[in-house]
């Protein structure tokens, strides 16, 4: 087990190292000079040069890469070029929006998907199942930014129940803040709920077909007893894996929705940072997101390995 853990940890570190090189190089070859962008169209070349040296952009590439990596290992993510505050502070502010939004969307999606999936599975091929599967097919096909626009049109502009965007901050009160996250969370949750409901249904149907459930039924359990008593618990494993994946997807994938609703979240931070060439922010946030994905995968692998010792030998 220890050997397995070490092996996995090594591969995790190598992935992160490779990711850091890729991200650094890509941001390095982006055309556009952060200093020139900040100084604008009439700037004096000497002033741009002065700013470049102030930002440390005149140092050699390898030096800046090592500086960045060593800094990150010590928990220092550098200072944003445009905002002139530590990147960690910016990220902290933005996570306070993105993380609750992600959890809100995930909660909504799970709350919709679980009952829908179970219901559909329990009425396989009946009208109810077909209706739910039809709706989820549609849900998967809807681009979330378009759905978001429709939500804005209906609830913000026509009915004026919600504001069309913006985030008042948690200081304004939890309920007020949650309200401003509601439309974005719905827009994010719909496609995820559709995927999850489909996974839930097929996972349940698969387990219902398995031998132990058949045995249970042969022993006289009704279909719904078998469903609730045996199948559900076992069907949850793939479902939870998907939920885990969706979490990291939503954390980074809310970028377009954050733009539509003008939320000061992590995705919008990177999006803006790319267009302002605030490269230090771009790099650090992407590495953090990669780290989140890799870490979640690692934990899932470990959990599987603990649950099923055979995997330790087979899994590659």
């Amino acid at each position: 087990m220890t050997l397995y853990l070490l092996r996995r940890l090594l591969s995790l570190s190598l992935t992160l190292l490779a990711a850091s090189i890729v991200v650094f190089l890509v941001t390095e070859i982006i055309p556009g000079d952060p200093a020139a962008f900040m100084m604008g169209i009439n700037a004096d070349p000497a002033a741009i040069a002065a700013l470049r040296s102030e930002l440390g952009l005149d140092q050699p590439v390898a030096f800046r890469y090592l500086n960045w990596i060593v800094g990150m290992l010590q928990g220092d993510f550098g200072q944003s070029y445009t905002y002139r505050v530590p990147v960690s502070e910016l990220v902290g502010d933005r996570i306070a929006v993105s993380l609750p939004l992600t959890l809100y969307a995930l909660a909504l999606s799970t709350l919709i998907a679980f009952p829908a999936g179970v219901f559909a599975a329990s009425r396989r091929n009946a009208p109810g199942d077909i209706a739910i599967m039809g709706v989820t097919q549609l849900g998967v096909a809807v681009p979330n930014f378009w759905f978001a626009m429709l939500l804005v049109l209906l609830f913000a502009i026509t009915l004026q129940w919600f504001s069309a965007g913006g985030f008042p901050g948690w200081d304004a009160g939890v309920l007020v803040a949650l309200k401003s996250l509601t439309l974005p969370a719905i827009a994010l949750a719909l496609p995820q709920a559709s995927i999850l409901a489909r996974v839930m249904r097929s996972s349940l149907l698969d387990t219902l077909d398995e031998d132990f459930v058949r045995t249970a039924r042969a022993k006289g359990l009704s279909r719904s007893q078998a469903l609730w008593g045996h199948a559900l618990r076992n069907a949850l494993i793939p479902v939870l894996t998907i939920v885990g994946l969706q979490f990291s997807f939503l954390l980074a994938g809310g970028i377009i929705i954050e733009n539509v609703f003008y939320l000061p979240g992590l995705g919008r931070l990177v999006f803006q940072a790319i267009s302002q060439r605030d490269l230090i922010v771009v790099r650090s946030v992407i590495i953090l997101l990669v780290f989140a994905v890799v870490a979640v995968t690692f934990l899932v692998d470990i959990a599987y390995a603990i649950a099923d010792p055979r995997l330790r030998r087979q899994r590659r």
């Binding site: 890729v22 970028i255 995705g267 990177v270 999006f271 992407i286 995968t297």
Partner: peptide, 14 residues
Amino acid sequence: DLIFAFPSLLLAIL
């Protein structure tokens, strides 16, 4: 694994 770990839309924008 590496490509999977990247936030796809962000990388596409980059």
